[in-house]
Amino acid sequence: MLTVDFDRLGLRAGERVLDMGCGAGRHAFEMYRRGADVVAFDQDADELSGVRDLFVAMNEAGEVPVGAEADVKEGDALSLPFADGEFDRIVAAEVLEHIPADIQAIQELARVLRPGGTLAVSVPRWLPEVINWRLSEDYHNVPGGHIRIYTDKELAYKVTRAGLELVGKDYAHGLHSPYWWIKCAVGVKNDDHPLAKAYHRLLVWEIMKNPPVLRLAGKVLDPLIGKSMVLYFRKPDAA
């Protein structure tokens, strides 16, 4: 289930790309399939171990173009262990809302992006997230949970202050917002609630089969109640 539009990001085969806060690796895997030289970065060693294993399996299965490379790197988002301007493209999907010093993390992303390169940042969208927070403390009040709710203006301001230009905005996962509203209403850990189970089956159908009726529903719902907001930025060319 991808949040970032890689065509909009401008990703091309052979480019060096960073998935910062990669988690289980969903965006890193797609960039690898597209022939990029991928670094999956996270602070969770267990997650990175699984990502590395799947990188190897993808290569052995012939799922990636010849010459494409992928690796993992463990570290701190506030001090990225990379050179200035090292990456052509960067993805930071659903990670900044977890980081107390988000401005410092954004500055690091801007530092390691090359002039002319692009960055995609996704965070939970303001309205769906506000509803989740008001329905349930347990939704966000957990170790490593969400610590802030961004408006599009706040996120754009913080990233442009780091020297990048806003070039686009999108929304994704409109079908997922009602699921989380249900979960927050009945209990985020209450997976056996009939309504939550029924809606979960719908989302599994979407992810596994992506039928036309759900694609259409997504196109209608994404601009209205998409759970994720995606902002696209470009680093100005060097003078």
Rank of each mutant, 00 (worst) to 15 (best):
E74G: 09
M58Y: 08
L214W: 04
Y171T: 09
I225E: 05
A172L: 06
V186E: 03
S79C: 09
R234L: 05
D170S: 12
A45N: 03
K153H: 06
R215M: 13
A92Q: 02
H146I: 11
V17I: 14
A162E: 06
Q43P: 00
L96K: 07
S79R: 07
D222V: 07
E206K: 15
A156H: 01
V95A: 09
A120P: 02
I99E: 03
H176D: 08
A120F: 05
R34V: 02
K227V: 04
P81E: 08
R33E: 14
A217L: 15
E108W: 02
R89Y: 02
N141W: 06
E63K: 14
A196D: 01
P211I: 10
A198W: 03
V230G: 09
G67N: 10
V230S: 11
A101T: 04
R125N: 12
P236Y: 12
L135F: 06
Y150D: 02
L214S: 12
R34G: 00
M31A: 13
S228I: 09
R89E: 05
A28Q: 10
A239F: 12
L224E: 09
L221F: 10
K183P: 00
I207R: 15
C184A: 15
H98D: 04
Q43D: 11
E30S: 09
E86S: 12
K227S: 07
D170T: 13
P124L: 03
D46F: 10
L135W: 10
L113C: 03
L214Y: 06
L127I: 13
E63M: 15
K189G: 01
V112S: 08
V121P: 04
F6V: 08
C184Q: 07
D71E: 14
R34W: 00
R201S: 15
L48P: 03
P124C: 04
F41A: 10
R114K: 12
G163L: 10
D170W: 03
V220W: 14
Q43F: 14
G67K: 12
H98P: 01
G168M: 10
M20A: 15
L195W: 01
W181S: 02
R34H: 01
P128L: 11
K209P: 01
K169A: 11
D37G: 00
G218H: 09
D138A: 15
L175A: 03
G14F: 01
